[in-house]
Design a protein around this nucleic acid. Structure first.
Lengths: 185, 185
DNA sequence: TGCTAACCGGAACGAGCGTCCCGATTGTAT
DNA sequence: ATACAATCGGGACGCTCGTTCCGGTTAGCA
């Protein structure tokens, strides 16, 4: 019960929203390593203002990642409903593209100094469930090998995002190849 | 011509070798981010001693990586000579395994704050040539798709090492899958 | 309008790390 | 054995960055 229901003062609410928006962009561009002062500068506030809304830098990063994950999961749900056979592939490659423009998300998946399952267990569980679902659908539709499991898909996501992050658009050339590897012979 | 041909004093030579050996192990375990003081402590010397042999931490890291690359290339040459069809696959998966126990090497390939082609152009060229060679052999032997090029292989290496590094042995389950993707249908 | 609690910016603090410096030590040539 | 130059260890310095603190400012209510 650390909740505080009293509504924020107008300026405080404005600043909080501003910080969130700027932090979102900044983590995406620079990754989790960016200094708090840089986010404060971009948002036009003092560092103290950020710390009044988020107890640590880590907490701010988590808030952003949780939100980002929610978006990704939502999108994937639509994808899966549309085409069971393609859902998993569309999701994988979409995630890879996201990783290209969102360094923070990539780091969250890779787990560099930040364990998703520990920090955001709820979001992680939702994400895993969704993936299991899409995988099963693909396997039923015959577009995905039956011997692939959820952990394999998670591993693949890490690899795909690393390729996309470090090798740029060059990585896209490998998507068909990955798909071929996942397809039953 | 920044060379200095005068032989090192006995203690200096001993320390230099000791630092190289310890730095090798330490970068492998902890990655390029490990403090110089930690390497100095493990080697039983002062930080100043390291700086007398290597102008910067970066230079020490480069020296280690260059050596590591040389080993990898040498091993790959043997591999390629033995079995043209399997050479590329053996090399890829060997590199992935190396990445598991050698964080420094992984970082060098991924290019996180360190561009191989710029820092060690010679080693990089040799590495690239070897890869092109193995790729061509595999394609001639019919075990590798003809539409794959050297850049694709480099991208794959980044992905494989990321998988191995962040997902541990779990990554090995995907090796056959990657191979399937690379094999002509 | 005036009061006050909430909020603000940014200076200050402390920890971590790369690099430099210097008085003490030691290898080596004579 | 002696002398001197090379080398050594580790403390000092400067910088970055997360976090805290505080004197000044402002929103919201009476």
């Amino acid at each position: 019960m650390t909740e505080n229901d009293r509504p924020l003062r107008a300026d405080a609410a404005r600043n909080r929203a501003r910080v969130l928006r700027v932090a979102y962009e900044t983590f995406a561009e620079e990754g989790a390593g960016v200094p708090i002062d840089e986010i404060a500068r971009r948002a036009g506030v003092g560092a103290g203002t950020i710390y009044r809304h988020f107890p640590t830098k880590e907490a701010l990063f988590q808030a952003i990642v949780a939100d980002r994950l929610r978006q990704v999961v939502e999108r994937a749900r639509d994808q899966a409903a549309t085409d069971p056979g393609e859902g998993l592939y569309a999701f994988l490659f979409h995630l890879a593209e996201q990783g290209a423009t969102d360094l923070g998300l990539t780091e969250a998946f890779a787990g560099s100094g930040f364990d998703l399952a520990t920090s955001l267990p709820e979001a992680e569980r939702e994400f895993t469930t969704l993936m299991a679902d899409m995988l099963a659908r693909g396997q039923r539709a015959g577009t995905v090998r039956p011997d692939v499991d959820v952990d394999d898909v998670k591993t693949l996501i890490v690899g795909l995002q690393a390729m996309r992050r470090f090798r740029g658009e060059q990585a896209e050339r490998l998507y068909p190849l990955i798909r071929a590897g996942l397809t039953p012979r």
